[in-house]
Design a protein around this nucleic acid. Structure first.
Lengths: 156, 156
DNA sequence: GCGCAATTGTTAGTCAACCATACAAAACTA
DNA sequence: TAGTTTTGTATGGTTGACTAACAATTGCGC
């Protein structure tokens, strides 16, 4: 398909606010945009707490499963070991959690929240509430449930 | 809330395959997981072409809007100017597009695809087809439409 | 027209996340 | 016991996002 050189240079329909044309029908593109919007809002919400999505997820999971090993954590959050390491290191540097050598398996590190981590997680869960309210701002309860179910089909 | 120390250390329900507990009800968490899954599959699909999601989006948009300025591009894809720069630089280094100084506005750079970029975009669109089929693998047409509409509400 | 403000692109630096690779220690297995 | 697998670790590279600063250009108010 050949474009006629300079026919309508600089965005054909100048009225629209943000037309993205053909690509607009691509599902993966909208997942990316929605994720980007969520990430931006999350980051804003968590500037004070100075935590990322991944870090909150890790704190949350370690709290739910005290003594969990890094590999187990990585599988549940779909990360590889190296990435998990980096995140755990950062959280440990802030004294939010600690590594204990596992008694049963000398290779494993058992992860536990420190009191500071517990406290931070509580604050984080509160902030998550705000953030979730924003994500759901245009949804009914039924739509949230539906969206949850659809998204799960993608990543399961 | 105080946990009874070592009551059920190392993951309470050991049978489940990847229980993530309470956090499972968080919508933002599932958006993140779905996006992660998409990104992984996309990256796999595009290893040969050596293109990222962002790069494909940019090529696509420049093709749809020849002569588009970087700022306009950035707005449509929800990126800032600095990030856009980095991506454009990479694409230009591969000779997929070029910057022309805009005639009407000396500040703007008019972006155009080079023939190599056109060719690569064609291949990319084909690969996108495969990728989209994967994303939609568990969805009916009706569900795709619904999901698209719900996601748009988040990022609009 | 002149000067100031806004826009656009650019550069530089920081950071989080991801991936690949290689290595060491511990556990498991044949 | 010897070899393999698992787990954590260290290292380096890539991508993307953000901030701050700066120069060139444009546009606006006076």
């Amino acid at each position: 398909m050949i474009k006629d050189k300079f026919a309508d240079v600089v965005t054909p329909p100048p009225g629209e606010e943000a037309d993205i044309g053909e690509i607009n029908g691509i599902l993966g593109f909208h997942i990316r945009l929605a994720h980007g919007a969520c990430l931006r809002h999350f980051t804003e919400t968590f500037t004070e707490l100075d935590l990322t999505q991944k870090q909150v997820s890790v704190l949350w999971l370690v709290d739910d499963h005290p003594g969990i090993a890094q590999t187990d954590l990585a599988q549940r959050l779909r990360m590889d070991r190296a990435t998990t390491m980096a995140i755990i290191n950062r959280l440990q540097a802030k004294h939010y959690l600690r590594r204990d050598r596992s008694a049963e398996d000398g290779r494993k590190q058992a992860l536990f929240l420190e009191p500071e981590g517990q406290a931070m997680l509580s604050r984080a869960k509160f902030a998550i509430g705000e953030h979730e309210a924003w994500v759901k701002r245009h949804f009914s309860d039924k739509e949230v449930k539906l969206l949850l179910e659809l998204l799960a089909r993608i990543h399961e």
